[in-house]
């Protein structure tokens, strides 16, 4: 199967992904926390951006991978891709939670509130709920085939939330700032843009590394469970 072979091939370079992610994040952190200038109005608190934005981008990327993988699974029924989707959902929850928590911490000194019912924040929180629902669904069903199919359908339906998250700051009047990098240009100072880009690429690579490790973990877990199950059934017989 094409996707399984691609995943296996990429996993050979797993360590390099981890090293590259680590290096980029370290340089990005140094530039973001030490060399970049503070914001004129927000002051030092703007430095939260270098962790909040990459985490949010990685969370959305994780969901995009989950969506693509789910479509692929429904078409080809490749269990390796299903494993990868399962892994992507777990990591997606992690990055979504980080984005929400850091966003809340950033909101307090700038908006004077920890949380507000803003379209961007709500749509992002909905993504977290969809991902949690996805994982819950996977634990409730006994039949592995059905579990994977229903989970894939849920992931595909839930994908509708992603364009809403992305365009929410354009469609509605929100407290959340509009896109800093868009087709209209870049509205961010150069010494802030470089660490932000480094951190973003670092987080994407970190996501890829985590995805490989977690896919491997789930595969090994299934392998062990299957073998143990087979051994146990032989003992019972």
């Amino acid at each position: 199967m094409v996707a399984s072979r691609l995943i296996a091939k990429l996993q050979r370079y797993e360590g390099w992904f981890g090293i590259a992610a680590g290096l980029l994040i370290m340089v990005g952190l140094y530039m973001g926390l030490v060399t970049s200038s503070p914001d004129y109005y927000q002051g030092e608190v703007v430095r939260i951006m270098y962790i909040h934005v990459p985490a949010a981008q990685s969370a959305m990327f994780a969901y995009t991978v989950l969506f693509g993988g789910s479509l692929w699974y429904l078409w080809k029924r490749d269990p390796v891709v299903d494993n990868m989707c399962h892994a992507a959902a777990g990591i997606g929850i992690f990055f979504t939670a980080i984005a929400l928590v850091t966003g809340s911490i950033w909101a307090k000194p700038t908006w004077n509130t920890w949380w507000t019912w803003d379209p961007r924040l709500i749509s992002f929180a909905i993504m977290l709920l969809i991902l949690v629902g996805y994982l819950m669904l996977r634990t409730f069903l006994e039949d592995k085939e059905k579990e994977a199919t229903y989970a894939a359908i849920l992931a595909i339906v839930g994908f509708i939330d992603l364009p809403i998250i992305h365009f929410s700051v354009e469609w509605w009047r929100t407290l959340h700032q509009p896109l800093s990098i868009s087709t209209r240009g870049v509205s961010i100072a150069r010494d802030m843009l470089i660490p932000l880009l480094l951190m973003s690429i670092g987080f994407y690579l970190l996501f890829a590394y985590m995805l490989m490790v977690r896919t491997q973990m789930l595969y090994l877990q299934h392998l062990l469970e299957a073998k143990r199950g087979r051994m146990l059934s032989k003992v019972h017989l």
Partner: peptide
Amino acid sequence: ALVPNYGFVTAAYLISL
């Protein structure tokens, strides 16, 4: 300079990393 507000920055990084 503005008052640093570094407590928020530190909290955000620690809570993530």
